[in-house]
Design a protein around this nucleic acid. Structure first.
Lengths: 230, 230
DNA sequence: GTCTATACGACGATAGAC
DNA sequence: GTCTATCGTCGTATAGAC
């Protein structure tokens, strides 16, 4: 159990990916060394750089696998709602539920590392590193565009820039929701962990309240004055 | 300007702290090496470990200085509102503005590294590291308790556990708001950076909408059934 | 093409001389 | 208190064996 799970595995590349994913999700990216990965995979240290180029590239590959799946599920959820609506604009609650419901579902999967992955994903958004953010942008481009279009239709009176910002805020709230109970316990020692299924309705109420909140005065003013000018 | 700002500075400890703060806020904690710090401070490499014990301890010291100041300002803002209210419960908007207004103000200070600090602070909440979270809990204990008390009074009909969660969600939204425009640009290439002073009203609308949103059904149900049982 | 052995420079940390 | 020398580990690069 200590190391070298299997010595004559068929695909070195796959063994590295599996070992890396498992270790990353358990210890985080930084705390996982190349020597830990290659040790567990039973391959030579240099194999990682040969197959992936660098540790960062390996991280990206592991990340990509999960993120692609996650975004596919998010799009499926949105499309399912759109099919039901039959061309009519979706209710904001349906759109938000499609995006964040799928996210929380993966976050609830503690067995396959989904929870750890979602925590890492939340942190990655605020990563100062340039190429990480750019990679994330590419992965998100399609799904964000689709969800934004749905929201534009659902909220025709809200300026698009405002919707974009509020979606951004919602992602932040979700990130903390997933990072979760641990952080909350710090603030309230008597805090009960309770049923994690309550998180979803809790978060949904908050997100919808924020999304449909009255527009900030400055935006209202600028819209009013624009209307006045016209 | 390259290194060794002053060779015969009086207080080695202070010179290390200043150099560390400057470098941390510019490059982040991890990207700043001990050799960079001691080089800029004009002291020996081993001096950091002698005076602070470790790099982590030095990070805590620098972090603490900022966070103490930030939380002091947040409490001052709350107390100023409470003085105006003369014993009456504060409006939720005043409470939220006190906490997050001060935060955004520090985040807007790009000159002294306030922006970088706030970005790092936002990430630190979701840090899996145990002692980092415990340190943060101690630093936040008083200010969170005070703000929660104010919110309990302001929203007597909302279950306290719900308020706690929503405050947590608000912190997440703020964290992403500060991490900011860079992340947003990734999703919308045509996105305009615009006036950063608009961020505050934008965020405030969202936060208040979320804070005052209708309670999730499950919470309402459990409260109703509890009332029924009584 | 794959893979291994080995070495390189930078990192945080520490023991011991002054 | 401060310094030098050195330790073990890190990610990475490369020469050469299969």
């Amino acid at each position: 159990m200590s190391e070298a799970t299997a010595k004559q595995g068929p695909d070195t590349r796959a063994r590295i990916l599996n070992a890396a994913e498992s270790l990353f999700m358990t210890h985080g990216f930084e705390a996982t060394s190349m020597r830990m990965i290659t040790g567990q995979a039973g391959v030579n240290l240099a194999a990682v750089n040969y197959h992936f180029g660098s540790k960062d590239a390996l991280i990206q590959e592991v990340f990509k696998r999960r993120l692609t799946e996650l975004n596919r599920d998010r799009l499926s959820a949105l499309e399912a709602e759109e099919a039901l609506a039959n061309g009519a604009p979706l209710k904001p609650s349906k759109i938000v539920a499609a995006f964040f419901g799928v996210s929380l579902k993966m976050a609830a999967d503690t067995e396959h590392g989904g929870a750890t992955f979602m925590r890492l994903l939340g942190r990655t958004y605020t990563e100062p590193n340039e190429f990480v953010r750019q990679f994330l942008a590419e992965e998100y481009a399609e799904v964000v565009q689709r969800f934004m279009s749905a929201l534009y239709r659902a909220l025709p009176d809200v300026p698009r820039e405002e919707i974009l910002w509020r979606f951004h805020f919602m992602m932040g709230a979700m990130s903390y929701a997933i990072a979760g109970t641990d952080a909350l316990k710090l603030f309230a020692g008597d805090f009960d962990d309770k049923d994690p299924t309550r998180l979803m309705p809790r978060l949904m109420s908050f997100l919808l309240g924020g999304l449909r909140a009255p527009l900030p005065e400055e935006v209202v003013e600028s819209r009013t004055s624009r209307r006045d000018a016209a």
